[in-house]
């Protein structure tokens, strides 16, 4: 068992962490854009465990978003788009330019999309946006996700799974499966 008191406290290299962010010992966040799109009002909104490395990650969290990341994770220039919940285990690697999105961003029905277009426009100030599909993403322990891969809403990636570079994952991935493609398909086990 590591003596946590001996470790440097978690920090962000480019400034003071937002007050609703908890970062465990020996974890670090780098990059000046890390919290540029961080709007969550949850407390805590972002929890990161110990010994994790977040290099150039964008934490784009909407007002109600909550993100939990475990220990010994290593993310490189990943984009976390969250309106609801991302739950990421320990020993998870996200390669360069990986995108996670737990939302569709806009409604599916055209009439609702028109209402959303107006609400999002410069003329829509104060107008409420329609409900938008959001489903949590769960990434279990020991998952590896390669560069430029995309994980969409509602997906659970099982422990130890290996997601190849550029894969677009729309459905659950069983533990230890190796997947590739758009949409991602199982090509083997690790």
């Amino acid at each position: 068992m590591t003596d946590m008191t001996q470790l440097a406290p978690g920090h962000w290299t480019h400034g003071d962490l937002p007050t609703n962010v908890r970062v465990g010992p020996n974890s670090m966040i780098t990059g000046d854009l890390a919290f540029k799109r961080f709007f969550s009002r949850r407390d805590p909104a972002l929890i990161i465990g110990a010994h994790s490395t977040m290099e150039g990650v964008h934490f784009a969290l909407g007002e109600a978003a909550q993100v939990e990341i475990g220990d010994y994770c290593y993310f490189t220039d990943a984009v976390l788009l969250c309106e609801l919940e991302l739950r990421i285990g320990s020993y998870v690697v996200l390669g360069w330019n990986v995108t996670l999105a737990d939302t569709d961003f806009h409604p599916v029905a055209p009439a609702l999309r028109i209402a959303d277009a107006i609400a999002c426009s410069p003329l829509g100030k104060g107008r409420p946006r329609p409900a938008i599909m959001r489903q949590p993403i769960i990434i279990e322990d020991d998952v590896w996700i390669g560069p430029s891969a995309t994980i969409l809403k509602g997906v659970r990636i099982g422990a130890g799974a290996f997601v190849e570079a550029g894969a677009l994952v729309t459905h659950d991935v069983p533990p230890r499966a190796r997947v590739i493609g758009n949409p991602a398909q199982i090509i083997g086990q690790v």
Binding site: N26, H51, T53, Y72, C73, Y74, Y91, V93, D141, D142, W144, A159, G160, R176, V190
Partner: peptide
């Protein structure tokens, strides 16, 4: 996955 775990501990 378990060999990867060891590497992630070294990486830090």
């Amino acid at each position: 996955p378990f060999a990867r775990r060891r590497e992630l501990k070294r990486a830090v």
